[in-house]
């Protein structure tokens, strides 16, 4: 905790420590063929960072290895389950995902652009909201639970077919006001510990918080298979965990605040690759 009561100068000095670890120089190629961008120039809208890094580089050699082969990556079990669900007709229209979209590979570009503005619905939609939009509006089926296993399996499938695609989330136009709301949340301190997202993930990435190696909190790897709970985790659930750990009342999974935060945090990773299902601590 000591780090966080230091001034900004001290925090910056500690941050330079991240150049040491060998893991951080590693490159990620999945199945020996899909190259993943794990470090690149920060997008223009980011004033406080010059480089952005995938969470993968902050993990141990062993954890990194779990993501380099689809038969090592336990998240791929759930991609298989998503692929099964893709072909299942549901709802009053008796349609499956496959009836409109053929193979999941036809949506390989989708994961990289979400959250994004939906003209018809006049709202910013996360990938989960769009999947539920398909279910309720096109299939006449019930919406899946936000960050529930059915939803995460489908998001993992759509991420897996888009791996290697650069994240490219639009922050202007009709999405801009929500993006600004997300940015404000990112820099707002919350909870008894009085921490903002930025205090850990912008000011102190690369440092250790006890035994945890702090990442930049990028979400290009979601859904994430976490060793901690041995299942897929959604970005909103992860946000919730972070906010809770500042000892604050958290926003809900699927709430407007977390949709805005997801849009903003996703845009901080513009240029990194779609990586999900990734493997993290």
């Amino acid at each position: 905790m000591k780090t966080f009561v230091q001034g900004g100068v001290m925090a910056l000095a500690l941050t330079t420590g991240m150049q040491v670890g060998a893991d951080e120089a590693a490159n990620l190629v999945i199945n020996g063929e899909t190259e993943i961008t794990v470090r690149t120039e920060a997008p223009e809208h980011l004033d406080n960072l010059s480089k952005i890094y995938s969470g993968w580089i902050f993990r141990s050699d062993e954890t990194q290895a779990l993501q380099m082969d689809d038969f090592d990556n336990p998240g791929m079990i759930f991609v298989d389950q998503g692929r099964d669900a893709w072909a299942v007709a549901e709802g009053s229209e008796g349609k499956a995902c496959a009836d409109c979209h053929n193979e999941p590979e036809s949506l390989a570009d989708a994961r990289a652009t979400y959250p994004k503005w939906n003209d018809e619905a006049e709202e910013v939609r996360t990938l989960a909201m769009q999947i539920n939009g398909c279910r309720t509006e096109q299939m006449g089926a019930e919406a899946w639970k936000y960050d529930g296993s059915d939803m995460l399996n489908m998001e993992a499938l759509l991420s897996s077919v888009g791996r290697g695609t650069p994240i490219n989330v639009a922050i202007d136009g009709p999405a801009q006001s929500m993006w600004e709301q997300g940015r404000d949340l990112y820099y707002t301190r919350t909870g008894q510990l009085d921490l903002s997202c930025a205090n850990c993930h912008e000011d102190n990435y690369g440092n250790y918080i006890r035994a945890d190696h702090l990442s930049q909190g990028q979400i290009n790897g979601f859904p994430v298979y976490r060793l901690k709970n041995a299942k897929l985790n959604g970005a909103h659930s992860r946000f919730k965990g972070c906010v809770r750990d500042t000892r604050a009342e958290t926003y809900g999974v699927g709430s407007e605040e977390f949709i805005a935060l997801e849009l903003y945090v996703a845009s901080r990773g513009n240029g990194l690759s779609v990586e999900g299902p990734s493997v993290r601590n």
């Binding site: 038969f71 079990i77 041995a230």
Partner: peptide, 8 residues
């Protein structure tokens, strides 16, 4: 050979 199976 590599094998994975989903089980809690």
């Amino acid at each position: 050979i590599k094998t994975l199976i989903s089980h809690k």
